[in-house]
Amino acid sequence: MHKHFFTTVFLLCFAFLAVAQQPDTLKKANADTVIKKVDTVRKSSFAPKIKKDKVYHPDSTHSPSLAVKRSLIIPGWGQYYNRGIWYLKVPAIYIGLGFLAKAIIDNQKQYKIFLNLARITNTGGVPTKGQPLYDTYIKYQREYNLYVVNYGASYTDLANASDGYQRNFQISILSVLVVWGVQTVEAYIDAKFINSFTVDNNLSFKVTPTFMNQPVYASNFNSTFIPGLKFTFTL
């Protein structure tokens, strides 16, 4: 009887101790889990972020010298080689050259007319058949009647007019050379940017709300900050 009693008491005490120790074990396990989570959060929050290397795409095959050579041979060829907005550049080049070509032709024509009229007027009268300037007079008879007979232009007036048209003719030729050179330089610079500079594929754009300090003239007593938007560009 006593043996059964002590045995029962011993088993109850053992069971009580086992039940009493279980919460401590659970608490310890939970505490270890929390500590691990906190460490993980700390490591993930404060660990330095590893930045990805930027990837560039240089166009090393694009040759600025080739663009220059093509522009020197044919205006606009270098712009077409560079692509970009060549469909706007090339027409603009040829429109400008077209106007200058027309100016060259017109000024050269007027220069010859007034030069010959000045030569005819310098003889002192209308040349007759057999005289050196008779053929020239027949060729420019309409212009002679218009400027000399109708308007009374003198030799000095005609000579000054011929000099003016000659000057405009030379300026027009110089302008063609300038346009040709400018479009060559433009083709070189454009090709140089394509060849030497690269494009980063890690571009990003971020918009975040923020607060800004109010200007002094716009401040009030309710708040010293005003809401705003922050734009961040990553290149």
Rank of each mutant, 00 (worst) to 15 (best):
K3C: 07
F6G: 01
F10Y: 11
F10A: 15
L11V: 15
A15P: 04
L17N: 15
A18Y: 13
P23I: 05
D24A: 14
T25D: 14
K28D: 12
A31V: 02
D32S: 11
T40R: 07
F46T: 09
P48N: 06
P48W: 08
K49W: 09
K49Y: 10
K54E: 11
H57C: 07
D59I: 10
D59K: 10
S63C: 07
S63K: 02
L66I: 13
A67Y: 00
A67E: 00
A67V: 01
S71W: 03
I74H: 09
P75E: 04
Q79E: 07
Y87E: 06
Y87C: 04
P91Y: 00
I93F: 03
G98D: 08
K102C: 15
K102L: 15
K102A: 15
Q108Y: 06
Y111G: 11
F114G: 00
R119L: 14
I120F: 02
I120K: 05
I120C: 03
T123Y: 02
G125I: 09
P127L: 00
G130W: 02
Y134T: 03
T136P: 04
T136F: 00
E143L: 05
E143A: 08
Y144I: 03
Y144L: 01
V148P: 01
N150I: 09
Y155A: 14
T156M: 14
D157S: 06
S162C: 01
G164K: 12
G164L: 14
Q166C: 07
N168K: 15
I171P: 03
S172R: 04
I173P: 03
I173K: 13
S175Q: 12
S175E: 13
V176W: 06
L177I: 11
V179S: 08
Q183R: 04
A187W: 00
A187Q: 00
A187M: 02
V199N: 12
N201G: 07
F205M: 04
K206C: 05
T208W: 07
T210H: 00
T210I: 06
Y217W: 09
F221S: 05
F225Q: 15
K230P: 01
K230M: 09
F231S: 04
T232R: 03
L235T: 10
